[in-house]
Design a protein around this nucleic acid. Structure first.
Lengths: 229, 229
DNA sequence: CGATTAATTGACAAAACTCAATACGAGTGG
DNA sequence: CCACTCGTATTGAGTTTTGTCAATTAATCG
């Protein structure tokens, strides 16, 4: 079993080759041919920063990325997580409004934005996929808005666990790449509340937490019923 | 002064003509030539419904639209408001995940999705604008996520007022098209909290509320400092 | 003008936050 | 292999904010 903390892999190569491992259905796979380079980012390394000029498009090959915004008083909101197969950094604005940071050691495919735009001018298919990618990010953001605006702590955690399970293909045994602090900042809660809700779900035998980073879904159905949409 | 409650206008015509009144800089203006028809929707009328098949693209000519999602237990989350010049309904999914409802009597330009997709295949400029529109919706959604996840009631209200003032070009004298219930469901608060925060801002002489639907910004600077990003 | 809906206000309850203490776990050096 | 340390997570006690419920006032519509 591959663990986040040990996923440093000496293998290198072009992003194209690296991206072959991506799920075939993901937009990233179609766009893979354009990825000109592949870099490794260490745990907590910055991929791009809030306010920085948008100049590249990225694809997660392995690892995990958090998309964060720092507020004036030091509070932090995480806009989302990017997992293997996900594209990110594809913004229409001149500057990034969020930072992207590698949560664990990650391999990230990179293409120049200009190359991308050029290619999209040539290919309707690619242009359509660019739009689809942005639209799916929008769809995800809208779903998250509902969770943040109208969910109790328990509903937020339930939604988060089900989402992670689905996206990591973990079949009920989730190996979380991120610490509690990230989960809290993503769900608009404190780490204490995250911890308490997880423990209460464990006591109710709905999940089990053999290790802080590993969560097993014992009664998925109950979690689904907690989701509010 | 035009009021939301009295903006019923007997004038009809093609959307193209109607859309001439839009701000020239808005994407809607560029896309205006495609709008094949223009319909009026009464207060609270449904433009499209959650789960309905996506079949049209819409542009607000006059009035205001709320973008809402109904949750299982009857709670409601408003994803955003569309104001004159805004495009909406441009989704990549097969079905709408939110409903769109006219808040006041509104004129809405409508184009078939298929017509739109065809035209975007012919024109890179149009395709680019479609992407830009979705990207700007994403940008707005991400901003709203920060507000919902990390803002106090006061910060949420301050952000809302400044946003509405800017988008309605009201220069500090905002004529809100929506009732408190909509503001509450947009900000993830209750109507009572919205009411209390507004009154406390009024008592602090930061705003004045001559009428529930009209809010004047007395000290914009103070509101800006309340925003968290 | 009366009926109906929308908004405000108050008293109280509940959910989540804060602060502080404790426990756990991975990595380090003896 | 065992302490030791440091960062992360958990747990507890008490506070704060916001939500709930109920009553009142204000606005809108016929």
């Amino acid at each position: 079993m591959l663990h986040w903390k040990s996923d440093i892999d000496a293998t290198r190569g072009t992003a194209f080759i690296a991206l072959q491992g991506l799920p075939a259905a993901s937009p990233a796979a179609h766009i893979a041919g354009l990825m000109s380079s592949c870099r490794e980012f260490a745990r907590d390394a910055e991929i791009f920063q809030q306010n920085e000029t948008v100049s590249n498009i990225y694809a997660v090959v392995s690892g995990a990325v958090r998309f964060t915004r720092l507020l004036r008083d030091g509070r932090r909101q995480i806009g989302g997580f990017y997992l293997p197969g996900d594209l990110f950094g594809l913004e229409s604005e001149e500057r990034h409004s969020f930072s992207a940071e590698s949560i664990v050691n990650s391999k990230i495919g990179i293409t120049k934005r200009s190359t991308f735009v050029q290619a999209a001018m040539q290919s309707h298919t690619l242009a359509h996929q660019v739009w689809m990618t942005t639209a799916s990010h929008l769809h995800r953001a809208q779903g998250h808005m509902s969770v943040l605006g109208r969910g109790t702590a328990q509903e937020r955690i339930a939604t988060f666990l089900l989402d992670m399970d689905a996206r990591l293909n973990s079949l009920g045994s989730i190996d979380l790449p991120m610490p509690r602090r990230d989960i809290a900042d993503y769900l608009g809660l404190t780490i204490e509340t995250v911890s308490r809700v997880l423990r209460s779900l464990e006591r109710a035998r709905i999940i089990s937490i053999p290790d802080a980073r590993r969560i097993t879904l014992l009664k998925r159905q109950v979690l689904c019923e907690m989701e509010d949409f």
